[in-house]
């Protein structure tokens, strides 16, 4: 930065020499203010998404910079929402980026009084073991009249109304194939 530019950067210099002698506008604008730009404009990518709260299905644009979500706002293209969001939809960035989100698997052993951390793969193995054990223990081949039942009533599940159709499809497919029928979600509540 040359001396001249440096001096021209002084608000007082600009105030005295420019069009803003009272120094309330152009002359007072700081370099930061001058260079401000919306972070949506400088994002690396933008994903077209849908709000995860209620069932109106408002369009969202998710802006990402350096692998982090930097803004989530309404998608003006959506004929449903026309770019608008309610307070919950508007809080979606907080939902996704919150420090309060749980990012580690936690495990509470029987009769335990606190959480312990657990490795993801270990947890998956343990859950698979328990599913098979519960299934074996409670399996019903046939009813008392000999008609097929082919099921377990030892396993339950609740959830799905905030999940994707593709996820629900796999959940229902897997549970049905292993004979678990007690699959429910918010639609019953």
């Amino acid at each position: 930065m040359g001396v001249r530019t440096w001096i021209e950067g002084w608000p007082v210099y600009r105030q005295l020499t420019g069009t803003d002698p009272l120094g309330r506008g152009a002359a007072s604008q700081s370099a930061r203010s001058k260079n401000l730009t919306a972070r949506t404009e400088t994002a690396d990518s933008m994903a077209r998404s849908v709000c995860p709260y209620c069932a109106v299905g408002c369009g969202q644009r998710i802006f990402v910079k350096d692998g982090e979500v930097v803004q989530i706002e309404g998608d003006p293209d959506s004929p449903i929402s026309k770019g608008r969001l309610c307070p919950k939809g508007s809080a979606s960035k907080s939902l996704v980026t919150s420090d309060r989100r749980q990012k580690k698997v936690l495990y509470r052993r029987p009769y335990g009084t606190d959480w312990e951390e657990l490795d993801l793969e270990t947890a998956m193995d343990m859950i698979a073991d328990r599913v098979l054990a519960a299934r074996e223990e409670t399996w019903e081949d046939r009813d008392e009249d000999g008609r097929p039942l082919n099921r377990t009533l030892g396993i339950s599940s609740l959830g799905g109304a905030t999940l994707d159709n593709e996820e629900n499809y796999l959940i229902k497919k897997l549970f049905t194939a292993m004979g678990a029928i007690q699959i429910e979600n918010q639609a019953r509540i």
Binding site: G160, T162, N168, N185
Partner: peptide, 16 residues
């Protein structure tokens, strides 16, 4: 309806 895909979770049900 009150959840993002509660309609979907009835169409492709997680219902008993």
């Amino acid at each position: 309806r009150g959840h993002a895909s509660i309609q979907g979770s009835t169409d492709i049900p997680t219902l008993f």
